[in-house]
Structure formats: C-alpha cells, structure tokens
Design a protein around this nucleic acid. Sequence first.
DNA 1: CCGGCTCTGTGGTCCGACCACATGCTCCGT
DNA 2: ACGGAGCATGTGGTCGGACCACAGAGCCGG
Lengths: 246, 246
Amino acid sequence: MPVEWQPVQQSRTHELVLRSIEERVFAGELRAGDRLPPERELAPVLGVSRSALREALRVLETIGVLVAQPGRGPDAGARIVRNPDDALGRLLRLHFALGSYSLHDVLEARVVLERSSFEGAACHAPDEDLDEAEELVAGMAEPGIGVSAFNDLDTRFHVLIARSSGNALTSTLTSAVRESVRPLILRALEAAEDWPATARALNAEHRTLLTLVREGSGPEAADLVEWHIRGLHGTLVEDPTGPTAP
Amino acid sequence: MPVEWQPVQQSRTHELVLRSIEERVFAGELRAGDRLPPERELAPVLGVSRSALREALRVLETIGVLVAQPGRGPDAGARIVRNPDDALGRLLRLHFALGSYSLHDVLEARVVLERSSFEGAACHAPDEDLDEAEELVAGMAEPGIGVSAFNDLDTRFHVLIARSSGNALTSTLTSAVRESVRPLILRALEAAEDWPATARALNAEHRTLLTLVREGSGPEAADLVEWHIRGLHGTLVEDPTGPTAP
DNA sequence: CCGGCTCTGTGGTCCGACCACATGCTCCGT
DNA sequence: ACGGAGCATGTGGTCGGACCACAGAGCCGG
C-alpha cells in the first residue's frame, strides 16, 4: 500500500516538453554551452506546436538555464547557460513581497548565510576582491552620501564578500536574500533619525569586518557580521501595506 | 556620472508584461489568493497578444507565484499563490545537474542550513511534527529496507525538521538543497559496501538527533547533524558523466 | 581589397481557430 | 415541487500560419 497519495500527472504539453529537456540535462546530454535546435525544427520533432515548445523554453529561461537570442551566427539561437543568480533573486523578491517569508525568517537566513560567507571569505578571498571591497567601503564613507547610493554600495559589498567566499551556492543564496530585502532596508535607512551618524556607525563596522577578513579571523568576522545584520534589521518594520499573514 | 553601465532595457513584450505584473505585486495590489482577469481580457488591456501574456504568466507560474486552471467557477482562472518550494527545488536541481555548483559547495550549504534548522527545531518544533519524525525514523529502521525507500524517508525527515524549525525561508532552502542532492545520495547509498550496517549507523544518528531536538539541545543537535551530513557526503563522488567545470 | 547590398535564418509577436473540461443553468419528466 | 439529464458558457491549453526585427553570411561591384 502506498504511504501517500501523489498528485496525478498533469498532462499539459509544455510540461511534457519541459520534462523531456530536463531529462536530457540530468542525463548529461545537454551541457552548459550547448545549443538547442531551432524552435521550428525542434517543435515538430517533439510532436508539439511551436507555442508549447516556446512556453517550455520560457520556463527554462526563467530558471536561468537557457538564453535565447535571435539573429544568425554562432551566438544565435537557444543556448544552455548557468545563470542562477537572477532567477533566484527574482524568485525570492516576489515571494518576499507576497509574504511567503516573514522579516524574521529573512533575518535569520541572512545571519546564517552571511556568517558562512564571511568565514569563507576570511579563508579564501583573493586580494583583488578585498581591494574592490575596500573601494566600496570607501565609497560608503564619502561624506554626504545619499541613502540610495549607500544602500547600493552596501548591497554590493555584502554580495562581493559572498562571492569571494569561494562557495558559489551560498554566494547565490546570500545575494538573492540580500537583494530581496533591499527595498526594505532602503526604507529603513530613509527613516533613520540621524542618517549621518547611522552611516558612520555602519561604516565603522564595515571597515572592521574587512580588516578581520583580511587577517583571516573568520569566527570574529562572523560574529561581527551577525551583530551588524541584527542591528540593522532591528530598525526595520514590516511593510504595513505589504505582505501579511493570510 | 553613473558608477557603472547598466545593460540596456530589453524590450521583449512578455518581459514588459512580466514587469507590469511584478510591479502590482510589489505595490501590494496583487496579493496571495487574488485572481487575474481572464487571459482574453487581460491581453488587450495590456496591449499585447495572448501569446505574449501567456509567456509572462508561465514565468510567474514557474516561480511559484501563480497557478492556473481551466474550467468555470470560483477556483478557475489564474490565481496568485505562494508556493516557492517546487520552484526553488527545480531551480537548484537543474543548476546542480549543470554543474553550477560543486558538490563541496552543496555540502557546505547543507551544513549551514541544517545546523540552523535543527537549532530552530530544538526551540520551536511542535510535538506533532516530532511524532511524525519519530515515525519516519522508525520507518528507516525497518529491517531489510531498500535503499530507495530509505532515501525517501531520509529526505522527508530532514525536510520535516526544517519545516518544523519555524523558519519558512531556511526551510525552503534546506528542502531544495536536500532534494537537489537526492539522486547523488541515492547512488552513494547503492554503492555502499555493507548497506545494512550503513543503515544501522545512520539510524542511530537519526534517533540521537531526534532525542536532542526533543530535549531542546539545539547546539548539540547542530553539531551532530553537521557530523552526520559530512559523513554521508564524504562517501559521495562527483558524477563522472555529469557536471564538470567548463 | 573593401564597402555596401541582399539573402537567409533566428527568435519574437500576433491572430484566429479549435479543444477539453468544469461549472452553472435550463428544461423536461416524475 | 423536485431532481436529473443535457445544453450553454467561460476558462485555460493547444495549434497552425503569418509576419516582423535583427544580425550574420555571402555576394557583387567599385
């Protein structure tokens, strides 16, 4: 006796097409860089209309597994790629906007992921990344910097550290989560009572973080970034017009 | 002067439609449970063809933000939902198959996420979830259990703990990451030299984990699950036919 | 040799039609 | 008056064909 009922197999054509292409990927027959046949050829081979095929391709495109460009030549057509970041970012942004995740959940996830990022960065970050981070920190220290510009640089700082941690997966997740709360952080910073003082405090933390990473003090950097994130999120509030529990 | 060049705005119609719907979500005008107008009405309102609109809807559907079903009545049509798990799972599975992430990256991500899951579960897990976990552990302890069935139960165990941790986001991420390595773990278990002994060892760890969670020993549970995961991943190997560096 | 032109192939879009299905309504028989 | 069979309606899903915009390939003339 089966332990559980499974939802019956949907038979929408584009899902079948999608499954067919996915299987080729899982089997290793389709690899990054490969090109798919032109839509007008592939559709009749699969026995579906071009529309159905296109919807499947669109799905793969939103997952960040496929890009398509018109024209002619070696770069034209539909190609398998690996670009998960945009896809993951859009996914989390939308779901956060819909209230699938509470602010508290995002906070905890950020803490966990960025702790790992900074520990990894303390071990593996190449110098050029740290130099770039240095520039970002310097940019945030510019006197009279606007809230919006500060937020952009801060995002890039955290994302850069994540990328330099040497772990592509946690890097992607960190970026996506950070991006998903970007508008919220922006509003929080705009609501700050004494913006210059806030900026100075955050900058001091950034500079200390970078120093700890440079000298390889992973655990200390992790603790500080946790404190850094919790401090900032403490000033955030749930968007009153936005997501709430159902 | 802008600090950086931005890629020029693509003008593919379905992307404009997508952006338009996304903005409604971000603005809070579209909330979970809302219904979109029928495709045949919405397309002319947006000034696009039905095909272009449908491609945008398909994107939203793969993100887990929309479901559509034909027919008539209150449940028919396109509805805004919050179902990120399937979307995230498919995304990570495909990208892992394409080699966007190395096995090591996934291991570290699992460690970080599941540590957090078990710590959270030790604090907030409701008793009924732990009872269900108990059943799963008991199921895995059945003598003569097959590798495949064991793998299924093990997956459900880890996912259940993640869900009971009270954090929807880390839960989703944990599930997705665990699912993405499921086939790999399956092959590793199948290749185990002494499967019954392996199963016994894993079961002992599961039982101890559950006990630690029940008594609220978060840090100890986190340490054990890290050891548990690292031990299992140590037996895994990169798929020789599968993803490799470009 | 080179510059411009045309040809060709690609994805992107649009239109109109039909299909499958589930609901809601009507209408007839009891 | 009630109930069930059957039709009407509205929804997403699919299909086929046509056209558009664009970018490279190849030709042709200077």
